[in-house]
Amino acid sequence: MNGRVLRGHAGIGPKVTGTALVAQDNFSARYDLDLTEGRFSRPDHALFGESYVGRVLVLNAAKGGVATAWMLRAMSESGLAPLALLLNFANPIMAQGAAFAGLPLIDRFETDITAALRTGDQVALDPAAGTVTVVPGS
């Protein structure tokens, strides 16, 4: 299984490698996160209570309002940001926010990305190519 490559649409941001935090839930920075503590704060979110800092967040679809477009950069500069975002479906706000923040984002995978990865997997992202490689041994 490891070493496999998952292909999505060409994304945004630099190459990174990190640890996945996976759920089949959706994502909005304003609706779901406590930005001062760096954790999921929406009570009915599957990742409620989890820290997202430095993780490769793997979730289903971008949801919520427009605030995320400003917020991702503020999160990056405060040091309380995810390392990258992998979604089945981004929306304009998530793409704009990732571009503004320089945060890696890939979406529209050939397979359901929330089923293809598990929390704890080490993944290497190449946004320009739209690929995610599961690092062997992880």
């Binding site: 945004i12 304003r30 400003w70 981004a90």
Partner: peptide, 26 residues
């Protein structure tokens, strides 16, 4: 990112401007 072929002229713009969202960075 969205495979747009070109840009389109817009006639008015409405911007989110709450400082909680912008933060110090914005």
């Amino acid at each position: 990112f969205f495979d747009a072929e070109d840009l389109v002229e817009v006639s008015q713009v409405h911007i989110m401007a709450d400082s909680e969202a912008l933060g110090e960075a914005g």
